[in-house]
Write a protein that binds this DNA or RNA. Structure first.
Lengths: 231, 231
DNA sequence: TCATTATTGTCTCAATTTGTAACAATAATA
DNA sequence: TATTATTGTTACAAATTGAGACAATAATGA
């Protein structure tokens, strides 16, 4: 088998959103023996579509296929070129930075994507260089390397801007969900409290939801309907 | 002086919007002796910010500085890798494709930007490889190379999506303009007729316009106010 | 068995925003 | 000085959204 070769100077990073305990969370990796935290990312093979590279990486990290994925910005400032960070990272793994992996110390332009996934579908897997790949609430992120904090902020901003227009909130939930669960997702993304009746009316009027059977949870009150997104 | 070196495999393309005769137009270049049309684009120097590379290219092509510029998507499919196109282009200029310019036949990922400029401020300048750099109405574009048509369509779509949110229409006009001129810009971008009174009310309520003196054009009716954008 | 409790789906009415038309106020013209 | 075309503003209707009320449940427990 031919050795995989990657496009030099080009990377991708992914902001993978999940929702649990009423909070919006993202997957963050911690590198071996360094205390350094970063977004899951990777490189693009020379004969591979950019989008496919990202899907491949996401699959490796989460085990999921069929992911809602959106490209939102490409970061190309010189300020993000800090070879000493990557060097620390490689050396902590006993890799000779003068050898085969020398190219990883070069300047990189990174294409950033965000993904929306159902929290429960995922078993995060660290890669060869990392200790862990774990969920962090967006309000309690560890310090991230390079410009990854900026990338996360831009991802959240774009998600907010797209939320109403694309009605993508449902991608953070299981196939079927209650109106209340959907509302909590919207509230977590927008960081605001929404009015129950107005939210319900808007979602129903948008004509994107299909109503299913009721969900009986054994609680002493009326059971809510389950919904799924149409199509 | 050290020779300029560029990041391999990485390019940018710019969709430069202007407005005249009630139409939205973009700048298209025609390459020497080929009949090939393309978006103005370029490459990123190894020690240069990505955004600065685009601004540099825009300045070279239009003579303008201080341009409203927005990055909107990065195109990285293998389908856009067609070395024969670039080869045609270079050979038509008598350039040996086995020599110094060999790297231009490689696969490229391109970061696409759109710019909004005042039509009158521009004297389009072709570059070394092109015959012309001219305005074309977006509804009457020539056939473009590679995926440049797709890039233009995505630029227009993004511009439409951002128009209300960012109120950027004014960047296509001179500093001072009448409400009617501004409305015509919005109509051209959105491809719809807008209602005069509603448009005026909305723009004034948005509190982004500053009202100046009236504009007397010698017409037999009330003269409109001139406006500029605040800040 | 039947009132109690918490939450849901829907309805009502008020408040706000938007659609639509009317109208008075011009700048030039004839 | 009446006429013309276009402008800025107002007035009212229509549509949308805000805010609360209320009946309809599922369980609970006296």
């Amino acid at each position: 088998m031919a050795k995989k070769t990657y496009l030099p100077h080009l990377a991708y990073d992914s902001v993978i959103f999940g929702f649990s305990d009423g909070e919006l969370k993202i997957l963050i990796m911690e590198y071996h023996n360094t205390g350094l935290f970063a977004l899951p990312g990777g490189f693009v093979q020379t004969n591979e579509n950019l989008n496919d590279a990202v899907l491949r990486g996401l699959h490796e990290r989460t085990g999921i296929t069929n992911i809602y994925l959106e490209q939102f910005y490409t970061f190309g400032d010189m300020a993000r070129f800090k070879p000493e960070v990557m060097q620390t990272l490689l050396e902590a793994n006993g890799i000779d930075v003068k050898g085969e992996y020398k190219w990883m110390l070069d300047r990189f332009v990174t294409v950033a994507y965000y993904a929306l996934i159902n929290y429960k579908d995922v078993t995060p897997r660290p890669d060869a260089l990392s200790d862990s790949c774990e969920w962090y609430p967006i309000k309690k992120l560890p310090k991230l390397i390079l410009d990854h904090k900026l990338i996360v902020e831009k991802a959240i901003q774009t998600l907010r801007d797209n939320l109403d227009r694309k009605l993508v909130g449902g991608n953070l939930l299981p196939k079927k969900f209650t109106m209340n669960e959907l509302q909590k997702v919207y509230e977590a993304i927008l960081s605001v409290k929404l009015r129950r009746t107005t939210f319900q009316r808007k979602m129903l009027a948008a004509d994107v939801l299909k109503r299913h059977e009721k969900q009986f949870l054994g609680k002493a009150h009326k059971a809510p309907y389950l919904y799924s997104f149409k199509k």
